[in-house]
Write a protein that binds this DNA or RNA. Structure first.
Length: 406
RNA sequence: GGGUAGGUGCCCGAGUGGUUAAAGGGAACGGACUGUAAAUCCGUCGCCGUAGGCUACGAUGGUUCGAAUCCAUCCCUGCCCA
């Protein structure tokens, strides 16, 4: 470990802020470091934002360090106010436990947990046992409210109202750091850049309580060149669970990123060597599609495995390249019930449209095709003639394709 | 607890008795253009539908021919005072 993983992370553009760059670089070069990233179980799947953190973890683990995935079974009950203008809805204990388990399954795809090379812990294990008075006396004196109030993460909420419940989030997260330091000699907390305030809190608390040198490091948030959050789709977040975001859609998301974001995404979301990343990123005009294909394939492969990535790629080729089979296209299986139904109703039933009105509108606007021919009649009923080898292709808009199978 | 300002469609935000399914902006969606990109332009953007109807402006009741707009009660939030 003579070269520091720090420089790798830096070169790939992960690093946003660090409590002490020189010392962290040195530490990561010279010793095996145990570090953690926290994930709050606010949904039943991880999404691309989390994926970025997992990439960081994977890089670190490959460099010989030991990741701890902290799932927030305790903090998740409170809700992190960072950067939010509204309060998170309260989750039940059952929700949180369920979500924690989903997280674990997904994480195992990226991180090697064998032989304790990485750990998953749940902060509910210690946070839930805390005694209020003891906690207050233990950590309370190390935080000043004045200081906390100036934290960037509360800024939005200072205008809209910050509850005491959420105000305590920082304390809990800080306590996690201290606890992990005590249990595992953990020395570094990482997180998205929006976690900076919370991470600082943990670093300072641990230093004050133990006198040990510990550090914090944040990574870039995945944003588009226009500053908006990346990974937003019409249906919300881009999930890592294929039940929530079909693999094909996942692939297409990356296939369609803005030109300006391709290089950054390749660096952050794949393990391709940086020379290759630069080469692909420097492609111009239509040629950059090549880079997008690589990006989509690589990211999909990491998240869903090679087999799924191949399928998604094949489906995309079939649709846009005009070759290959349709069998991996998003498919709608028709049933006897669909017999005689309007195509529109079938598509609404398959959630291609959210409502009939939306479908009608789309048809009126020339946005729906059946087997490559514009469909003008909203009341159209499928006939046998529409099917070739038992399947018909419906296109919604420019690039959403669905295969109807009898 | 007292005073005060608020709670409007996915988000921001106008609207203070009818012509308001509700201005404007953003997001989103469709079309044109293109490279399965961006930018731009045009269009759409509650639900069902031929007309027309239904549901909606924190909640519940009320006044009225008619309410997002007025009244009452309640819930929630900001700010000031205690």
């Amino acid at each position: 470990m003579s070269t520091s993983i720090f420089d790798v992370l830096k070169e790939r553009g992960y690093i946003a802020q660090c409590t002490n760059e020189d010392e962290v670089r040195k530490m990561l070069a010279n010793e095996k470091v145990t570090f953690y990233i926290g994930f709050d179980p606010t949904a039943d799947s991880l999404h691309v934002g989390h994926f970025l953190g997992l990439m960081v973890m994977a890089h670190m683990q490959r460099a010989g360090h030991r990741p701890i995935c902290l799932v927030g079974g305790g903090t998740g009950t409170v809700g992190d106010p960072s950067g939010r203008t509204d309060m998170r809805k309260m989750l039940t204990d059952e929700d949180i436990e369920y979500n924690c388990n989903r997280f674990k399954e997904q994480m195992a795809r990226f991180i090697d947990f064998s032989d304790d090379k990485a750990l998953i812990v749940n902060n509910g294990d210690w946070l839930r046992k805390l005694n209020y008075i003891e906690l207050l006396r233990d950590v309370g004196p190390h935080f000043t409210v004045n200081r906390m109030l100036t934290a960037e993460c509360y800024k939005n909420r200072m205008e809209k109202g910050l509850t005491f419940l959420e105000f305590n989030y920082m304390i809990m997260q800080s306590y996690d750091f201290l606890e992990l330091h005590r249990r595992y000699n953990l020395k570094l907390e990482m997180g998205g850049d929006d976690q900076w305030s919370n991470i600082i809190g943990g670093v300072e608390l641990t230093r004050r309580k133990t006198g040990d040198a510990v550090y914090g490091l944040t990574f870039t948030l995945l944003t588009k060149s226009d500053g908006k959050k990346m990974g937003k789709t019409a249906g919300g977040a881009l999930w890592l669970d294929k039940e929530k975001t079909p693999v094909y859609d996942f692939y297409q998301y990356w296939r369609n990123v803005d030109d300006a974001d391709v290089e950054k995404c390749l660096a952050l979301l794949t393990f391709l060597p940086m020379e290759e990343v630069h080469r692909l990123g420097s492609l111009q005009d239509a040629a950059i599609n090549e880079a997008k294909k690589v990006l989509a394939y690589e990211v999909t492969k990491l998240v869903h495995g090679q087999e799924e990535a191949d399928k998604a790629q094949a489906a995309a080729e079939a649709v846009f390249g005009g070759s290959g089979s349709n069998e991996n296209m998003p498919t709608i299986q028709l049933t006897a019930e669909n017999e005689g139904q309007k195509l529109l109703d079938i598509l609404v039933g398959a959630q291609v449209f959210e409502s009939k009105g939306e479908g009608r509108r789309l048809i009126k606007q020339n946005g729906l095709s059946l087997n490559d021919a514009k469909l003008a009649d909203p009341d159209y009923v499928l006939t046998d003639g529409d099917f070739t080898d038992g399947e018909a292709i419906v296109r919604k808009g420019k690039k959403k394709f669905y295969r109807l199978v009898k």
